[in-house]
């Protein structure tokens, strides 16, 4: 009985996935037929760019997982707190933008180090569930502490980037999304190279694999942890700038972090290339659903479509498209 059920549920998941892909393709197809195809292409391009901006947030998450084996549920809050600090510098102290970003950078470095030293280092060797709970607690703490210190009034970060779209052939491209996507690709390529080619990157992978064995190799595990959390903080600053510019700065910004989960589940928790592909898929699904399905169902489907895909993915390949097979289910 058990194996039959297993087989059925696996098959069911495949059917679901096929249905979902058919649905997405049909979206595009119907779009092409009933609207004009330019609209479909425009949506797709916008989706890809937005998706890459999700990748920019997800990369911090993957970085932490790859190097410390911890799952950071507070990545969205990192983005929020970085944006709040920069917006605070702009609004309250009237600092110029470059200085505000510099302050934000310094803040995130200290933030990452403090976090590692006082929250995560004491948890080295503890059960992964304990660490996950700690990051969830951290997420709520930040969501409360941010507005408490910097005020809850929504703010914005105005980057010196034009709002009007760049027209390129048939496409209308939003400059901030272009920039965000470009920065995202640049950083992802950089991290990919770091983990594959540099000695420290390889050592970091070793640390993620086994703290104990790494220590026996003379690797200072704590220092690598600090480097990982600081880097995740700094990457969150980039995400905070890009997203803060687009959707404004308040606690809602932290919700962008929730998109990290479909991205990394699709791509694989520990894969840099997976972050890119996962981000693009999530962005595409969102944009096409928003364009072709939402008008008929009264809206709102774009927000949960990526999660539907995520759940199906969990049933078929819980370790993602590019992830290592050896991943504990949690």
């Amino acid at each position: 009985m058990q194996p039959i059920l297993k087989f059925l549920s696996a098959k069911f998941a495949w059917i679901l996935l096929a249905a979902f892909i058919a649905f997405i393709v049909a979206e595009g197809g119907v779009g092409v037929l009933i609207k004009d195809w330019r609209f479909a292409v425009e949506l797709a391009v916008d989706g890809v760019l937005t998706g890459l901006m999700y990748s920019l947030i997800a990369v911090g998450f993957v970085l932490i997982y790859k190097s410390t084996d911890a799952i950071n549920f507070a990545q969205g809050e990192f983005v929020m707190i970085a944006a709040i600090v920069v917006a605070g510098c702009l609004d309250w102290f009237g600092l110029p933008l470059w200085l505000s970003i510099l302050v934000g950078f310094g803040f995130m470095v200290v933030f990452g180090m403090t976090l590692e030293r006082f929250v995560l280092r004491p948890m080295i060797g503890m059960n992964i569930v304990a660490i996950i709970m700690a990051t969830i607690g951290l997420a709520f703490f930040l969501r409360g502490a941010g507005p408490l210190i910097f005020g809850a009034a929504p703010s914005t970060i105005n980057l010196p980037i034009p709002d009007s779209p760049i027209v390129w052939g048939l496409l209308y491209l939003t400059p901030i999304k272009l920039l965000g996507a470009a920065v995202s690709i640049l950083f992802l390529a950089g991290f990919g190279w770091f983990f594959l080619k540099t000695r420290k990157g390889v050592a970091m992978r070793a640390v993620a694999d086994s703290h104990q064995v790494s220590m026996a190799m003379g690797i200072n595990v704590e220092r690598y942890f600090a480097v990982a959390w600081v880097t995740a903080g700094v990457v969150a600053l980039l995400g905070g700038l890009a997203w803060g510019n687009m959707i404004g700065v308040d606690t809602q910004l932290a919700l962008v972090g929730l998109k990290v989960f479909p991205v990394v589940i699709l791509g694989g928790l520990d894969s840099i290339i997976g972050v890119i592909v996962g981000g693009i898929v999530v962005g595409l699904v969102e944009a096409l659903t928003a364009g072709f399905v939402d008008p008929y169902v009264g809206g709102g489907m774009k927000d949960f479509a990526p999660y539907v895909l995520m759940v199906i993915m969990l049933m078929i390949r819980p370790y993602g498209i590019f992830g290592r097979r050896l991943i504990e289910r949690i």
Partner: peptide, 16 residues
């Protein structure tokens, strides 16, 4: 170390 080859494992041994 999983996901690494023999050479990478041994190079990590020289970390110290």
């Amino acid at each position: 170390f999983r996901g690494m080859n023999v050479l990478q494992n041994m190079m990590l041994g020289r970390h110290v």
